[in-house]
């Protein structure tokens, strides 16, 4: 555990809780892509199956359980409790174009051709692109609520901090995982355009809106 890893995890947790609270307090999931949230629920489920096979630490187990629980709670709020506010018409990204190629890649490029390892690899690849339906939705409507941009910033920051964590681990622990690193770089790059808008607009008190 190093400082980048810990702040990355906390940033990830903050993102998840910001989104849950935003939906709960406003009683609305307007502007939130349900498809991205389903993809994140699949990501956590397929990655954390190791909860059943190996114990690493109390921290590790509790964070995994919290992430999975929050992911399903978010999906429940969007598709059940507040489904009347769900903006399905604008959430039109075709997720099969992500899930099918990512599944194929996980079968082809992995560390070990076993069921759990392929699911772990699938979750790493899927996480790297799971935010695309949300970004697509924002580009389609041309705007995002400020609280939604805080959510996205924390989510992007988490993977950027993990990149620093991997550099740290490479130097001080001689450990690196090429699958996680390549997917993590892809994931972080997808947020760059958003980071720019967040810093130049949202942090200066303006609403995030895209030119028509």
């Amino acid at each position: 555990m190093n400082v980048f890893r810990l702040t990355g995890d906390l940033s990830h947790l903050a993102a998840i809780i910001i989104l849950l609270l935003k939906i709960w307090k406003s009683r609305s999931c307007a502007g939130i892509s349900g498809k991205s949230q389903i993809l994140f629920a699949i990501v956590f489920t397929t990655r954390y199956l190791d909860l059943l096979t190996s114990f690493i630490s109390i921290y590790n187990t509790s964070m995994k359980v919290i992430y999975i629980g929050c992911a399903y709670a978010t999906v429940y709020l969007i598709y059940m409790k507040f489904r009347a506010t769900y903006d399905g018409n604008h959430d039109s990204f075709r997720v099969e174009f992500l899930v099918v190629p990512v599944g194929g890649l996980a079968v082809l490029v992995n560390h070990d051709f076993s069921f759990l390892e392929i699911l772990w690899t699938f979750s790493i690849y899927l996480e790297s692109v799971a935010i695309l339906p949300q970004l697509f939705m924002i580009s389609k409507t041309g705007e995002a609520e400020t609280i939604t941009t805080h959510y996205l910033f924390c989510l992007g920051l988490y993977r950027a901090l993990y990149l620093l964590n991997w550099i740290w681990r490479f130097y001080f622990e001689s450990f690196f995982d090429m699958i996680a690193i390549v997917a993590g770089v892809v994931q972080t790059v997808l947020y760059c355009d958003f980071f720019y808008l967040y810093i130049t607009k949202v942090l200066k008190g303006k609403k995030l809106s895209l030119p028509a």
Binding site: R5, I56, N60, Y67, D112, D177
Partner: peptide
């Protein structure tokens, strides 16, 4: 093992 090191990360 490298496998456990990977599964330590979230």
């Amino acid at each position: 093992s490298p496998e456990l090191l990977r599964h330590d990360e979230l």
